[in-house]
């Protein structure tokens, strides 16, 4: 099985879907000739031409809105937001239009659009090139939000997103792009949206997280295994709507739950995960649910000292797991 980086898995999924279905096309800023500022659409312009890899004007609401219109017609647009931070001008199109279209038309219309956006910090991106924006969209029924953690998951989930008949936000951790490599089958496969995945079986502490933090958790878990602390790691993969069943099962498994996000703590995805656990697992818990998250400041600062302070890392995770194991 070939080994691919996280971003190569993005490109592979796009390319295979465009080969499979002529209605699939990519649009966004610099996605064409340049192949994207991160090179996620590298080579696609040469293979599929100007219209299927469309360089749009610099206007995010139009990228989303034109994509939604094309999707209403029956195309399968994959819109790229150059950075998740710059999705904000498109929020009205995503929340008022894409999310509500099927519902408001009583199932007459739908918008099978995928919106990809690189998110996340630890790349010296400062306030506006580091954010996690999923919580903005995670109370909008009609949307699905996918945040994969491995190249394997990227390929299978991006294909699923493109084939999905409803709008999907697909957030890719930009630090994972070249940092993470893994085996990715060459053949066609899709992974189910809405299903979490156990990334490590364990019996002492349950960690529920998503995105790059899955890797920090895996690294911490390996280290703690030497001390005899056995961590169970659930990767949410889809952060909206949440896989409640998998969350409940993972929480019950060890009775000690650590939730991790790179986002600001208050109002983040993991707050909802905590609510699901407290509604369903009261008598199975042996410790209070713990949250490890970014601080409640507007966004990640630039200077390395402050950036490091904001970011989650394996050491922070290790400490949090150990504290919980000892509770």
């Amino acid at each position: 099985m070939p080994v691919m980086s996280y971003i190569q898995a993005v490109t592979a999924a796009l390319k295979e879907e465009m080969q499979r279905d002529e209605k699939v096309f990519v649009l966004g800023e610099d996605v064409g000739k340049k192949g994207g500022v991160f090179r996620a659409t590298d080579g696609l312009y040469d293979e599929f031409g100007e219209y299927r890899v469309l360089d749009t004007p610099l206007a995010e609401s139009a990228i989303a809105g034109v994509g939604i219109g094309a999707a209403m017609y029956g195309m399968r647009p994959v819109a790229e937001m150059q950075f998740a931070d710059f999705i904000m001008p498109a929020v009205n199109q995503i929340i008022s239009e894409a999310a509500k279209l099927r519902y408001r038309s009583n199932n007459d219309w739908n918008a099978p659009i995928t919106i990809r956006a690189p998110y996340g910090g630890g790349v010296h991106g400062a306030l506006y090139h580091s954010q996690s924006v999923e919580a903005v969209f995670a109370n909008q029924p009609g949307l699905k939000i996918v945040m994969p953690s491995t190249p394997y998951d990227v390929k299978g989930l991006l294909k699923a997103a493109i084939r999905d008949n409803d709008p999907v936000l697909f957030f890719e951790h930009k630090r994972a792009y070249r940092l993470l490599k893994g085996e990715v089958p060459e053949e066609d496969y899709v992974l189910p949206i809405g299903k979490a995945d156990v990334k490590r079986e364990g019996s002492d502490v349950t960690i529920i997280t998503y995105g790059l933090c899955v890797h920090f958790a895996l690294q911490a878990a390996e280290k703690l295994a030497e001390e005899g602390i056995d961590a169970h790691i659930l990767d949410l993969r889809t952060v909206y709507p949440l896989d409640q069943e998998a969350i409940i099962e993972a929480a019950k498994k060890t009775g000690k739950v650590l939730l991790i996000t790179e986002d600001n703590k208050e109002g983040s995805i993991i707050g909802e995960v905590a609510a699901i656990i407290s509604e369903n697992c009261l008598f199975d818990l042996d410790a209070p649910i713990q949250r490890l998250a970014g601080p409640d400041v507007p966004a990640m600062p630039y200077a390395p000292t402050m950036e490091k302070y904001f970011m989650i890392n394996p050491d922070k995770v290790e400490k949090a797991i150990r504290d919980l194991a000892e509770f």
């Binding site: 096309f25 219209y51 299927r52 469309l54 609401s61 139009a62 989303a64 809105g65 034109v66 994509g67 939604i68 219109g69 094309a70 999707a71 209403m72 017609y73 029956g74 195309m75 647009p77 009205n92 199109q93 008022s96 239009e97 509500k100 279209l101 408001r104 038309s105 007459d108 219309w109």
Partner: peptide
């Protein structure tokens, strides 16, 4: 007839998207 919402003007990019599909 494309489905519309209450926030004004969101339909303009949708019509452009349909026209893009016509072109493609």
């Amino acid at each position: 007839i494309l489905s519309g919402s209450s926030p004004v003007t969101t339909q303009v990019p949708h019509a452009v998207g349909v026209a893009l599909a016509a072109r493609m």
